[in-house]
């Protein structure tokens, strides 16, 4: 199972909207950038939560970096959890900490031996690249949606994970910020392999950066492949998600 970074093995999980289920059998190779796109209530957030180990599937298994989430204890300090960065639709920045301290928190908790100066440099490096340096002392309530989201992305990447799971990463971001985010992720991937699984609900420049696009509707994979292959395969109604 170690050849793929993320594996959805015949996964079936109930969706919030009534009696429908998300059904998925998917393998994502290490270092790949996969964008999962589709209309609202298609099961994209559920897919990210399954990949993050927050939801246990009704049937099937989810492996991340070769480990089945069912076998990963939450409190294991060497857990695969630390190699997976996650940003959910609600990013969950801690409201009683400044943006700087939010991004710093994983380092403070997991890399206690790291010198303060080095930690601060690492945090500021991420924040500068995402255009957040001037907002370092603001609390989450003082930030707009896009700033909160970029802060959460910086926090997810601060431990230098191998896998990044993003749920609607462009929500609240203007066109320049989306391009900035794309550049930031491209730079990170060029420096060190990073497997990205991002859920999007509309076309965005991030789709062009994807090695693979998965089109999801009503819990079912409608198309899966490169952007061009998916565009040729789907109905005109779904084509606008990829072009």
């Amino acid at each position: 199972m170690s050849e793929a970074a993320i594996i959805f093995e015949k996964v079936r999980a109930p969706m919030l909207s009534g009696d429908r289920h998300l059904e998925m059998d998917l393998r994502i190779t290490p270092g790949a950038c996969v964008v999962c796109i589709g209309p609202s209530r298609a099961g994209k957030s559920l897919m990210v939560e399954l990949a993050a180990g927050l939801v246990v599937p009704e049937a099937g298994r989810v492996f991340v970096l070769g480990q089945d989430w069912k076998e990963v204890p939450d409190d294991d300090p060497r857990s695969v959890r630390l190699r997976v960065g996650v940003v959910l639709q609600q990013p969950g920045l801690l409201s009683n900490m400044t943006l700087f301290n939010n991004v710093l928190l994983p380092l403070r908790y997991h890399r206690g031996a790291m010198p303060d100066r080095q930690r601060e440099q690492a945090v500021m490096g991420h924040m500068e690249r995402l255009g957040l340096a001037s907002l370092r002392d603001r609390f989450p309530a003082e930030l707009n949606q896009g700033e909160v989201r970029r802060g959460a992305i910086a926090r997810a990447l601060i431990l230098d994970p191998d896998v990044l799971l993003l749920d609607d990463p462009v929500a609240g971001l203007d066109a320049d910020m989306v391009l900035g985010l794309k550049t930031y992720l491209d730079e990170r991937r060029a420096r060190r392999p990073l497997t990205i699984l991002a859920a999007l609900r509309a076309w965005s420049p991030l789709v062009t950066a994807a090695d693979r696009v998965v089109l999801l509707r009503d819990g079912q994979v409608e198309a899966d492949g490169t952007r061009d292959a998916v565009r040729d395969r789907v109905s005109p109604a779904l084509r606008r998600y990829v072009e």
């Binding site: 939450d74 409190d75 994983p106």
Partner: peptide, 22 residues
């Protein structure tokens, strides 16, 4: 309660920070 609603509790768990300890 507010931390649960804003999903800060989930975010801590996703960062590998156990709720019981932290």
């Amino acid at each position: 309660g507010n931390m649960s609603v804003t999903r800060e509790v989930v975010a801590l768990r996703l960062m590998g920070i156990p709720i019981s300890r932290f």
